[in-house]
Simulated scan of single mutants.
Amino acid sequence: MKIDLSGRTAVVTGSTAGIGRAAAEGLARAGAWVIVNGRTQARVDEAVRELRTLFPDSEISGIAADLSTAAGADAFIAAAPDADILVNNVGTAFLRDYDGIRSIAAIPDDEWLKLFQLNVMSGVRLSRHYLPRMAETGWGRVVFVSSESALNTPKEMLDYGMTKTAQLAVSRGLAEAVSGTGVTVNAVLPGPTRSEILSGYMADHAAAAGITMEEAEQGFLQALRPTSLIQRFATTDEVANMIVYACSEQASATSGAALRVGGGIVRFVA
């Protein structure tokens, strides 16, 4: 399958590292003009410079904006008013050791709200702007990067799981809203992935325990994701492959879907 996105403009939020960076690379490789996003100008500039080196024939630009705020989203939209593809990837999690109900009871209001603003409202705000424009032109792709935690609520990250489930509701609702327009909206659900945040957490745990990264990852899977069928962390490129496909012309009959790249962790078929 040859995916050709030449002539398409793709916005990828949270794309200076991790899954977002891999998605930006994949879209650029397919010929799209890619707009990179991060919170700091330094990281955006670095990512743009590296991507231009990798893809010298591609159009790569970047916008620094904090998409957890309405003002940040407005500034981003002002700088990039039009896009054919929107990958709502930006997000984070508060990783913590699980200590039963005490862990859940200790999550303060501001952490719930911070995660909701970044993980959910960033995608709502940008979709609210770009989707009507896509519908007017008769073509567009919106992808929300959710998580297997949307279906398999993690007791150790309940606040994070809540935001990922919310993303599924938003993505499905938006897909319904643009039915018949030529625009598709989907969600991609990664499982544990060697992304910047989770790899950092694993590295800290490995160092503290005097074990290797691979041993730390295996311990995480055995303790918290024992139903993994691949029995390893995914790479960011493996997740990006699904994102790029969902953005392609070939995925024109896929909309309103939750596309899993979770290594089979969720134990049901539908």
Rank of each mutant, 00 (worst) to 15 (best):
V142K: 07
E46Q: 13
A169Y: 10
V145T: 13
S255M: 03
T137V: 14
G263T: 02
G138Q: 10
I63F: 09
T212Q: 11
Q250C: 00
T40H: 10
D82T: 01
L224M: 11
I60L: 07
T53P: 00
L54I: 02
D97K: 12
A70P: 00
R49H: 09
I85P: 07
D99P: 00
A47Q: 03
V178N: 03
A93S: 15
I60R: 04
T153R: 13
C247I: 02
T16W: 11
A10P: 10
A251K: 11
A79W: 08
Q41R: 14
Q41K: 13
E217C: 07
P190E: 02
T13M: 13
T153L: 15
R133W: 01
A177D: 11
W33D: 13
S248H: 09
S61D: 13
A73P: 03
G256V: 07
R128I: 01
Q117N: 14
S15T: 12
A80E: 14
Q167A: 04
S195I: 00
V90P: 05
L95H: 09
A175K: 06
E217R: 04
L115E: 04
I19A: 04
R267L: 12
M1F: 10
D110S: 10
T53M: 06
H129K: 07
P192N: 04
G123R: 05
G210N: 12
E196T: 15
G182V: 02
A65M: 05
N37Q: 14
